[in-house]
């Protein structure tokens, strides 16, 4: 690995100070490092500076307040898995995050890192998109909020400017008629990269008809995609076998999957359909349970 300067500011202000020359001193943000360090060792990035954000208090926030779940950029996946309220209220996001890597990786990897790595197969992203999550981005002297949907623009590339970093991620906590689910498909039971991942959040009305829904699918395009065609197939309908079959059929046309070492394009399309059916069934079941 190339040599670089390592800095670990202890406040947001200090981090902003460091971001000021982040263009002239190419900087990468280090949180869990489970993707970054591997990629640096493989020679994919050679930053002049690593900015470790783990010592900044704001990046370590993990709580639910005012109808929002707040997840700091340095919060590791394992902490999220241990947060009972979050697991109960946002099971789709929680189960997606729980799938990131092994137990060892869970102790380091962060959700925001999963976003920034911008892999089309990132497990958390479809779930976060379906949940309507957004991120707080800061630069040397500016700040903005961005939705997770659309944040990744290509494999490994995001909307983040070279002198920006993410402080935290927020998502609205679902109401009592809304529930979510995430599933992915991998050849091995664990320690594997999603061939396809599907996240969904849906709201049922009193009659069990779908009042609102968001569905997103990972690994069928260069970035995870929202799937409005799947939503259209179920909106206003009861989530029964017929609706699920329509949704699965719609899911197969989402994106433009490729054939690679992890699966063929046809296989991915097929699995997108299978998982969409399974995820919607689970989400609808959870929504029914919640409204009881």
């Amino acid at each position: 690995m190339h040599a670089f300067q390592y800095v670990a500011p202890t406040s947001l202000a200090a981090a902003r100070e460091l971001l000021k020359d982040a263009i002239s001193v190419p900087t990468r943000v280090l949180a869990g490092g489970t993707d970054l360090l591997v990629q640096m060792r493989a020679g994919l990035h050679s930053p002049a500076r690593l900015l470790d954000i783990k010592k900044i208090p704001e990046t370590n926030v993990l709580c639910i307040e005012a109808g929002q779940a707040r997840i700091g950029a340095a919060v590791c996946a394992a902490r999220i898995g241990e947060h009972d309220a979050l697991r109960r209220l946002c099971p789709g996001v929680a189960e997606a995050i729980a799938l990131i890597g092994s137990v060892q990786v869970q102790g380091r990897a962060t959700v925001v890192g999963n976003l920034c790595n911008a892999s089309p197969a990132a497990d958390s992203v479809p779930a976060l998109m379906a949940a309507g999550a957004s991120i707080r981005v800061i630069g040397p002297d500016r700040e903005r909020w961005l939705p997770v949907a659309g944040f990744a623009v290509a494999p490994g590339r995001t909307l983040l400017a070279p002198d920006e970093l993410i402080v935290e991620l927020r998502l609205p906590v679902p109401d009592a008629h809304t529930a979510e689910a995430y599933q992915r498909f991998t050849p091995r039971a664990e320690m594997d990269i999603a061939v396809v991942g599907v996240g969904a959040r849906l709201t049922l009305d009193r009659d069990g008809c779908c009042r609102a829904a968001e569905v997103a699918i990972g690994a069928v395009a260069p970035t995870a995609l929202p799937a409005p065609e799947v939503v259209a197939a179920i909106l206003g309908a009861r989530i029964d076998e017929a609706a699920l079959t329509r949704a699965a059929a719609a899911a197969k046309s989402v994106g433009n999957p490729i054939s690679d070492k992890r699966g063929t394009a046809d296989f991915r399309r097929h699995i997108a359909g299978v998982l969409t059916r399974r995820v919607l069934r689970t989400a609808a079941e959870r929504a029914r349970q919640r409204s009881l």
Binding site: R188, E190, I193
Partner: peptide, 12 residues
């Protein structure tokens, strides 16, 4: 890499 060569893990 072990990630994509996919030898059995304990859960498999």
């Amino acid at each position: 890499a072990f990630l994509d060569y996919r030898m059995p893990v304990a859960l498999d």
